[in-house]
Design a protein around this nucleic acid. Structure first.
Length: 317
DNA sequence: CGTGTTTGACCCGCGC
DNA sequence: GCGCGGGTCAAACACG
């Protein structure tokens, strides 16, 4: 059964540091700053979708404009990278890799258009009142507040495209599935997950690319306000091979690009360069990344997918 | 029994 | 107003 056949994964984290880019790096304008990514940007940065020039709200924006999520990303089975016109940021998928996409600070902060979209759309049905309820007293005030809250949430989005045979990739957190919907123009459904930790509102959507069924598209929304469950982390860490570039004890950190990017920055930093240095100084993975980043624009972290446990859903045969 | 999944119904925004 | 599509809810169900 393929679900149990794990092969080595190569998590390919490609992130150009906007403060130090090589002329040869043709992707620098497309990829966000690693620091920005690690920051889990909030107010200054627009949503992922804004970075892509997409509707920041629902995936309807994807479908309406591009037919599907993968189209939105310029993903095709054979594509390696696709450049986006204007401010659209796109990614390509390489075999056996995961690509992390996150907001580009240089893009969204100055994009009134994107901001506009951001204001207009609402992802969030999620904040809507439970069925039947939801009467608001002061419409204007609540509307503004609602938009603000919506915006806050939608800005914290990360999309990962992973070559994997399993849909729900272990990322160190526990998830509860709360919905599944058929995706238009796709034979594969989209699953909706919520972090099971109380008071953690992080959600993620998982869907398989219909153009390249070996690719899983995972969209994280929000930021965890807690560390991964200790048991999960421990188990996961125990199962992981040391990274090619990082010390073994950091395996758990480097193992999950999702988690890595979702981590909260330890300090608030205004100075980009300082921030970068500081960030890298604090997180060993980032140290490792910085070292290698000076030579390559790309770092590859080798890891072995963890076994599934906890809420990991094993598709039925 | 606790936890997580399944799945049909429902809500909402949007385009026509 | 209506239909469509995406997102969410929650009861029923499955499982250890």
């Amino acid at each position: 059964m393929s679900d149990h056949e794990f092969r080595d994964f190569y998590y390919h984290v490609e992130a150009a540091d906007v403060f130090r880019v090589s002329a040869a790096d043709q992707y620098r304008s497309s990829y966000m700053s690693f620091t920005d990514c690690l920051h889990g940007s909030t107010d200054e940065y627009g949503s992922l979708e804004n970075a892509f020039g997409l509707s920041p709200s629902s995936s309807k924006g994807f479908t309406d404009e591009y037919g599907s999520l993968e189209n939105a990303f310029g993903l095709s089975p054979s594509s390696s990278k696709v450049f986006s016109p204007k401010k659209k940021e796109r990614v390509g998928v390489h075999s056996g890799e995961v690509m992390a996409i996150a907001p580009n600070s240089s893009i969204s902060s100055s994009s009134s258009e994107a901001e506009g979209n951001c204001e207009e759309d609402s992802v969030n049905n999620k904040n809507k009142q439970p069925k039947g309820g939801g009467k608001e007293s002061s419409k204007k005030g609540s509307k503004a507040a609602k938009k603000k809250e919506e915006r806050k949430q939608e800005e914290q989005r990360f999309v990962f495209m992973t070559k994997s045979e399993v849909d729900h990739l272990e990322d160190g957190y526990r998830w509860r599935k709360y919905g599944q919907k058929a995706v238009k123009n796709s034979q594969y459904p989209r699953s909706y997950y919520r972090c099971t930790t109380q008071k953690c509102t992080v959600k993620k959507r998982v869907e398989r690319s219909y153009q390249d069924p070996s690719t899983v598209i995972t969209t994280y929304e929000g930021r965890h306000n807690h560390p991964p469950p200790t048991s999960m982390r421990g188990n996961a860490a125990a199962l992981l091979q040391p990274s090619m570039f990082s010390p073994p004890q950091l395996a758990w950190t480097t193992s999950f690009p999702h988690e890595l990017f979702m981590q909260k920055a330890p300090h608030h930093m205004n100075d980009p360069a300082g921030a970068t240095a500081s960030m890298f100084a604090e997180n060993p993975f980032q140290q490792h990344y910085q070292q290698h980043h000076q030579q390559h624009q790309v770092s590859v972290v080798r890891l072995r997918p963890s076994s599934r446990h906890g809420s990991f859903h094993v598709p039925k045969a």
